[in-house]
């Protein structure tokens, strides 16, 4: 008796599915721009590949945000240049134009709890600071900005010539 009920339920379900499919096929055939049942042309699924970059705000070298205790300042220059001069408490994350920033570093920045991440780089064209800021933003770090003019602009503005 129970098996019979299942069979009836299955039969009804199949009838509903078949009925719906039939209605859909008829509707598709009747409408002017019906979907072709057989795709005759190749789908164009390939699109140009973007570099994963997000938005980053440009910041003046004398912006008060740079002195905020809630900001994490990142130096994008190579380690040797960082050793020569860097702003107080800056974190050195050398920017590489070819290799992605290591996930552990991104994790560390994300876990820092900083309300804002401010990056400065070499100030060249292109500026490594801007590139790193945009890469971090593209990887999900929020409120990322970069210092226009990079380290050189910061050094110029620093009264003591820097804070190593």
């Amino acid at each position: 008796m129970r098996g019979m009920r299942w069979a009836i339920a299955l039969r009804d379900a199949a009838a509903i599915v078949a009925g719906c499919a039939l209605v859909a096929l008829v509707f598709n055939a009747v409408r002017g721009d019906g979907i072709p049942l057989v795709q005759k042309e190749e789908y164009q699924i390939l699109v140009p590949c973007p570099e994963t970059m997000g938005d980053a705000t440009a910041l003046a070298p004398d912006a008060p945000a740079l002195r905020s205790p809630r900001a994490l300042v990142v130096d994008a220059r190579p380690a040797a240049e960082f050793e020569r001069w860097h702003t107080a408490s800056a974190l050195n994350v050398p920017y590489d134009y070819l290799e992605p920033t290591p996930p552990a570093v991104i994790q560390r920045i994300a876990a820092s709890g900083a309300a804002e991440v401010i990056v400065y780089g070499d100030g060249a064209d292109p500026d490594s600071g801007e590139q790193l800021a945009r890469e971090l933003s593209g990887k999900g770090i929020r409120n990322v900005s970069y210092v226009t003019g990079g380290a050189a602009a910061l050094q110029k503005g620093a009264p003591s010539g820097g804070q190593p």
């Binding site: 134009y97 070819l98 292109p126």
Partner: peptide, 22 residues
């Protein structure tokens, strides 16, 4: 060789290349 590769990419960035092929 690496320097040349980096320079090529930097040139692309200066020329507003954001995806490939451009």
């Amino acid at each position: 060789t690496r320097e040349f590769l980096v320079a090529s990419k930097q040139e692309g960035i200066r020329n507003k290349v954001t995806a490939t092929p451009t």
